[in-house]
């Protein structure tokens, strides 16, 4: 792949530089353009929510930032450094596997279907990567995991396997597992969509706590408009792999400017 030049800085500098920057990011699956020259900045400590119709590329944004797949064009910066690329002889070239693995430690991700490791207990799920990747001792890792499991209200169940936990409990363990890596940015992809209505609250409560107590940067994809409105610093409405409209929650929910945003919001509000 060609090296990228002048349009993309080798690093972001300045006090107001964002912790996450998507610059001109394109992702295709064959002919299908899923992200279309996307630009998106997220400031440190900001809670950004992504809403939009199914298939508009919301999950893809998070997956690209987690470096689960390669992007086709553009650069993603994390913490001022290029993540999808790295510097070589004064130009940006595609990141090596090692660079990607290193960069991923800045990001944590929670999935719609939890993706807990079923053969490990809740605690084992939370200590595996801190020991292997961060080099913590087992004792340190357990201590950190227990604190986090306590924070999400799962300490009593820490020796249970996922099969014995409810959906809400699994998702709380999954959040603790991601946090145990001390990421700078947390990604939540519809973390309540697979849950029964009566347990959604226990997961959103954990996210509220994170927003209130920690200066974490978060990107959240959700269909819960009420929760999004309450908690977000900024809301981005996605349509066809682009940000159709964005603004503070009151701007976007109470006074949407674009027609597509209005249609989407009235459709979801009607659906309840």
């Amino acid at each position: 792949m060609k090296t990228l030049t002048k349009d993309y800085p080798l690093q972001l500098s300045g006090d107001d530089s964002p912790i996450v920057r998507f610059q001109n990011v394109t992702k295709r699956y064959g002919e299908l353009v899923v992200l279309d020259a996307l630009d998106l900045d997220v400031a440190e400590g900001e809670m950004v929510t992504i809403i939009g119709p199914s298939g508009s590329g919301k999950t893809t944004v998070l997956r690209m930032l987690m470096a689960l797949e390669k992007i086709d064009d553009g650069v993603i910066y994390v913490n001022g450094e290029p993540m999808t690329h790295m510097e070589k002889n004064g130009a940006l070239v595609r990141a090596s596997k090692k660079h990607l693995r290193q960069q991923r430690t800045n990001i944590g991700m929670c999935f719609q279907h939890f993706n807990l490791f079923p053969h490990m207990t809740a605690l084992e799920n939370c200590i595996e990567a801190p020991i292997q990747v961060l080099g913590l001792s087992k004792k340190e890792a357990c201590q950190r995991a227990e604190e986090l499991l306590d924070m999400v209200g799962m300490l009593e169940k820490c020796h249970e396997h996922p099969a014995r936990l409810s959906g809400g409990q699994k998702q709380r363990v999954a959040i603790a597992r991601s946090l145990a890596m001390r990421p700078k940015v947390m990604l939540f992809d519809e973390v309540t969509s697979a849950l029964d209505p009566e347990v959604i609250g226990e997961v959103t409560q954990v996210i509220r706590k994170l927003v209130a107590k920690h200066n974490l940067t978060m990107l959240m994809v959700t269909h819960q408009m009420g929760f999004a409105k309450e908690i977000s610093d900024r809301v981005c409405f996605f349509f066809d792999g682009k940000i159709e409209e964005q603004g503070s929650s009151s701007q976007l929910f109470d006074n949407p400017q674009k027609e597509r945003t209005q249609q989407f919001l009235s459709a979801v509000l009607e659906a309840g």
């Binding site: 999935f111 993706n115 490791f117």
Partner: peptide, 16 residues
């Protein structure tokens, strides 16, 4: 596939 992605998101290397 989600198991691979979870492992990847935790920066686990291929051997682990």
């Amino acid at each position: 596939k989600g198991q691979w992605e979870a492992a990847m998101s935790l920066s686990l290397g291929p051997v682990r």
